[in-house]
Design a protein around this nucleic acid. Sequence first.
DNA 1: TGCCACTCAATAGCGTGCTATGCAAGTCAC
DNA 2: GTGACTTGCATAGCACGCTATTGAGTGGCA
Lengths: 146, 146
Amino acid sequence: MTFTMRSSPGYLVNHLGRLFAAELQARIRPLGLSVGVFPLMLQLWERDGLTQRELVDRLGLEQATVANTLSRMARDGLIVRRGDPHDGRIARSWLTERGRALRAPAVAAAEEVNAAALSGLSERERDAFVQLMQKTIAQFEGNAAG
Amino acid sequence: MTFTMRSSPGYLVNHLGRLFAAELQARIRPLGLSVGVFPLMLQLWERDGLTQRELVDRLGLEQATVANTLSRMARDGLIVRRGDPHDGRIARSWLTERGRALRAPAVAAAEEVNAAALSGLSERERDAFVQLMQKTIAQFEGNAAG
DNA sequence: TGCCACTCAATAGCGTGCTATGCAAGTCAC
DNA sequence: GTGACTTGCATAGCACGCTATTGAGTGGCA
């Protein structure tokens, strides 16, 4: 059994990830969003005023990555960062009006991308696909920490 | 049906891609390789002396990405680039001895990552997973060009 | 022959991820 | 209360992907 890219799960998942990201990028760019900020926005739309640490824990990104992304988001007027009155180390991120207003169109865009990408699969296959990914992610995160 | 990250194929595939990449990175770093060069090395191990254009076509990356990656590979002594004697525009990439020697351990590392990642799935599930990814990739590439 | 269009590759500039490091603020031991 | 540890965030520097632009070489055609 020789190793080939086209049958390597690692390669396939990365390649597919790029395709998804490019498609989403194209659809949310007109809104002034980009793929990197999207997961952060999802969290903040859910609940405002999170700390950087909380975002790191929820998203599985590194602290430095979140710090950089928040900086861009602040620069682009999606959020404002304000210190916590009780703990001087903490900076909480709050959506601006503009950031808040993007929720519906952005989520719609993401749903469109998902639907288009999986349009060649049956309902059953789609569910299986999602479950296989969740299971594999759990496998990774079950090992070394999370 | 509300939108959630944990059930969004796009988010899952990207998250899983990062996990795979991190795991592979950790295993091939001791060899002096990184995840970005890996697909290019696979092509060159298969056949030496490819042009940048040929690599772009085989890998579905942008020309600029391949150019940058080849530069790093040359800097790190994995390849040498030599012009084509018949066409002055073309630069072909040739593996160095060192680059050539890394094939076996690098492929072994990738196979280990795949095996570890999918160790929680049955044989049947693994096959289904790979097929679902191939099918979804084909769906994407079937649309706008390839 | 001389020009134009095309192709190939390099480069600039940026987003998004990482590791490593530093600093300021809080906390705990004593 | 002081010193040491911990926690939260920022920054530097790099890999790796992208778009856009540039420049050099080829080839066709008037």
